[in-house]
Nucleic acid binder design. Structure first.
Lengths: 237, 237
DNA sequence: CAATAATGAAAGTAATACTATAATAACATA
DNA sequence: TATGTTATTATAGTATTACTTTCATTATTG
């Protein structure tokens, strides 16, 4: 019990660093000032409500009683702000995985846990950040493809800005390899899982014909069931 | 042989209707005029080259020696034009599936054929349309999420504009059910397959850490191999 | 307290996403 | 062939977006 607590404490200490997004994303660290924190917190809520296309720095400035120019001193453009949000999220998920898996040995149980986390089935832990996690998750579901489906993808990638996403993918792939070392596509399966964990809930809500989650079954657990079935089938020895 | 030819002829006759996109997508039928056809053909090439964000009606007008206003008489906005392109593509894939599967009985072979078509492994058939298929496929890979990841998704869906995509998904799900009637997630597996058939080649090219297709292996066949492995594992009785 | 940095206020630019209008060209029908 | 209809061009204009610039005013830090 002591060790568990010590570990947990250690992991929490790392959270500050771990969730700190890449500074190349921002022109100055938004967590270091009141205005910066308001940009992030209110930005998440506003982008969630308006969607990426309708979201503008001008509207955000109005809603936090500041100015466009001030926001531009933190972020080059809204695409960078989106990347910042996504980086925050994937770092958070990576952290959740690290904490949840660190004292597990059975890779099967680890995989179930990962799917639970990816589908948003775990409650928020001690949260003093003031970040609206469900708004953030809605952004991840609806907007994250827009982070890399752009002509700038290679330039952004060469600045390591997709690192948290790629690291989490590799982390998951490693657990897959632990479960079945002979499986030839652990990274592709991990990225397919991560994508499906976003698209299937979106389809469930907006394009249910693309899913099998009908009526009252429309919940996160149903998606998790599908994903578990898929992943364990693929990895079966 | 006679029957095959007759069927093929019959199917080709249907192609005109089948590939005709929903007229609600356009303000007037672009295939009915020289200008309209230039908007589609040159639009596909230009959007492929510039990407959806950088593509504008003004640039397209310049490249076809016409005006912005003229293009607006065909399409309300560029999102509708994108939907038109995607509709064309999914109708074409549906058509390819219909032709390729119509004289097959074994669902296993059907599924392999579907995956081959989805990953772009089949050559173009008799093509008098003048549509640049590889540019169109590049648009589908890089931009199709942007068709439905928008706040307008429900409005667009209620106008049936995603019907070709949903129909193809249902078609594939039906073949899955034929292969294994007990599998509980045929539609989700079909949509996951359709999405992965776009994302995995994109990742292979731009974010290879998210895949297992390294070095000289970077080809369509490798992606098809992964997808076959995944689908047959999921459907295994 | 002085120096430095962050923010606010205001204005300005270039491009985007349209809309409107009048003139011309094409086309269809009688 | 004349006439009416529709399609296209040319031109201009508006509102919004995505920024940039400048300068005054607050905070912050040493």
């Amino acid at each position: 019990m002591f060790y568990f607590c010590a570990d947990f404490f250690f992991l929490c200490m790392n959270l500050q660093i771990s969730i700190q997004p890449n500074l190349k994303l921002a022109l100055r660290d938004p967590e270091a000032s009141t205005l910066g924190r308001k940009i992030i917190r209110e930005g998440i809520v506003l982008m969630c409500n308006l969607g990426y296309e309708q979201f503008t720095f001008k509207k955000l400035a109005e809603s936090i009683d500041s100015t466009e120019a001030s926001i531009y001193r933190y972020f080059e453009n809204k695409h960078r702000l989106l990347l910042y949000f996504l980086t925050w999220y994937w770092n958070y998920v990576e952290y959740q995985c690290t904490v949840s898996l660190h004292n597990l040995n059975d890779p099967e149980i680890k995989i179930r846990k990962i799917i639970e986390i990816l589908t948003g089935g775990l409650p928020n832990w001690a949260d003093t950040t003031g970040i609206d996690k469900s708004a953030l998750q809605a952004i991840v579901i609806a907007e994250s493809s827009k982070a890399y489906l752009t002509k700038e993808v290679d330039a952004i990638n060469s600045q390591q800005l997709f690192k948290p996403y790629k690291d989490l993918c590799h982390h998951i792939a490693t657990v897959f390899a632990e479960y079945n070392p002979a499986y030839p596509y652990p990274h592709s399966l991990a990225s397919t899982l991560m994508e499906a964990a976003q698209f299937q809930p979106y389809f469930m809500e907006h394009l249910p014909a693309l899913t099998d989650f009908k009526g009252e079954q429309r919940n996160k657990a149903a998606v998790a069931g599908y994903l578990e079935n898929l992943v364990f089938a693929a990895l079966r020895k």
